[in-house]
């Protein structure tokens, strides 16, 4: 078992020194950015043009749903959000620190990416995980 929390997804990076961050891959040919590892660009088909980039920690809410029914054991309601980060990369996650009511949620509201424990979820070996969330930008 690891003493340190593990990243909940591979594109969440936890450096030994410094703050966690999200990593994308940018195509050197067409400039598109992607979450996660890849060697071929799905937009333009360029091969071996991908390089890692640190994704910005701020963006805007693109779309959402308020989830009231989920799988057993999942706490509801929560806001499932699609966010466009400032560099144009789209990412999905929970929008937190907002009452789950459409009256409180506006398209294009500025949000920031925050890193926190993965809601207490542990894997079969007892490891803790670090995840990312969105919250309204103050």
């Amino acid at each position: 078992m690891s003493n340190q929390p593990l990243p909940a997804v591979p594109y969440l990076k936890i450096p030994g020194d410094g703050s966690p961050y999200l990593e994308g891959q940018k195509c050197g040919s067409c400039g598109s950015t992607f979450l996660g590892e890849r060697s071929v660009c799905s937009k333009c088909g360029a091969r071996d043009q991908m390089s890692a980039v640190t994704l910005p920690n701020s963006g805007k809410l693109y779309s959402y749903s308020i989830v009231y029914r989920s799988f057993p054991g999942i706490e509801v309601p929560y806001i499932s959000a699609i966010v466009d980060l400032d560099d144009g990369t789209a990412i999905k996650g929970n929008l937190i620190n907002v009452e789950p009511d459409p009256a409180n949620i506006a398209f294009d509201m500025p949000v920031e990416v925050v890193f926190a424990d993965a809601l207490g979820r542990k894997d079969a070996d007892g490891n803790s995980y670090l995840s990312y969330f969105f919250q309204p930008k103050t």
Binding site: A8, V67, F71, I74, I82, G93, A118, L119, R121
Partner: peptide, 8 residues
């Protein structure tokens, strides 16, 4: 870990 309800 399960991602449902954690990442949307």
């Amino acid at each position: 870990i399960p991602k449902e309800g954690l990442m949307g």
